[in-house]
Amino acid sequence: MLNPSATPSPLLFLPLSDELIEAVNLIEQAYSWQDKYRQIMLLGKLIPPLAAEFKHADAQVKGCESQAWLYHHRLNGQHFYLADSDARIVKGLIGLLLANCQGKTTEQIHQFDVKQYFDRLGLSGQLSPSRTNGLTALAQAIVAYTHDVST
């Protein structure tokens, strides 16, 4: 379980913007891998960057090929996340995960099947094994935070 030494203010943990949700819808509607890839890259640009002061090693998600950071905040039984990556494609993939987990309850997050979701989007066969492993690590970290009562 991640235990960052310095964490962002709870005020930064917000529901996702309408623009980000619309970007996810465009990925779902895209037919070719090239269109999906382009939309994923654009989605990554919509995720606010994490301040350098929060890019601590203890907030890094292990198992990602690139660097990725994840923070969690629970409010009124809902889970909110802040995440960033140094790789644009990973940042876009993070956006897809957040679209399915941001503001959700523990039960809803536990019911989310990332493999099934990425299969449905037509992304599973397109991602390299290392990207798939990193995505799985991020999804597992999101779920792991639902068990941590201190966040």
Rank of each mutant, 00 (worst) to 15 (best):
H73V: 02
Q60C: 04
Y31K: 13
T136H: 06
D58A: 07
L138Y: 08
Y145Q: 02
P49I: 00
Q29V: 00
H147Q: 14
G63M: 13
L2Y: 06
C64G: 06
P129G: 00
T7S: 15
A6M: 05
H56V: 04
L97C: 09
T136W: 08
P48F: 03
D58P: 13
L12H: 03
S5H: 14
R131D: 01
L14R: 14
A139V: 03
H79I: 06
H110E: 08
K45S: 14
S130W: 09
A99W: 01
I47D: 12
Y81P: 11
L70T: 07
R120N: 15
F80I: 13
N3H: 15
S66F: 07
Q78R: 15
G63W: 09
E19P: 06
Y81H: 11
P129I: 01
Y117K: 05
A6W: 05
E19H: 15
S130T: 02
Q140Y: 11
T106A: 05
L12F: 03
L135R: 01
T106Q: 15
R88V: 03
V114H: 05
D58F: 10
T106N: 11
D18R: 14
Y37K: 05
K36M: 00
D148V: 10
L123Q: 07
Y145F: 09
G77A: 01
G77Q: 00
Q102E: 07
N133W: 06
H56D: 06
K62A: 10
V90C: 13
A87I: 07
Y31A: 14
Q67W: 09
S66A: 12
V143Y: 13
Y117V: 00
P15Y: 13
I94L: 12
Q108T: 08
I21G: 06
Y71I: 12
N25Y: 06
A57V: 10
A68R: 04
I27P: 02
D113L: 01
D119P: 08
L16A: 12
K115E: 01
W69V: 07
E107L: 14
A57G: 04
E65M: 10
Q67A: 11
L127C: 01
Y37L: 09
G103Y: 09
L93M: 10
Q102G: 00
A87W: 08
R38L: 07
F112H: 05
A6R: 12
T106I: 01
G44L: 03
P48A: 11
A57L: 13
E28F: 02
T106F: 10
T146G: 12
L26V: 04
A137Q: 11
L75Q: 15
M41L: 15
A30P: 02
N25V: 00
T146L: 08
F54K: 05
I89M: 08
E19S: 10
E22Q: 07
Q67I: 09
I94M: 11
Q126M: 06
L42G: 03
L75C: 08
A68H: 07
L82Y: 09
N133R: 04
N25G: 09
E28M: 08
F112I: 10
Q102F: 00
L135C: 01
D86P: 07
D113E: 08
H56P: 07
V90T: 15
P49L: 03
S85G: 13
S128L: 06
P8D: 14
Y37T: 10
L46M: 11
L123I: 13
P4K: 00
L14C: 15
K55G: 11
L14K: 15
R38V: 12
Y31C: 04
D86M: 12
L97R: 04
L98H: 00
D119Q: 14
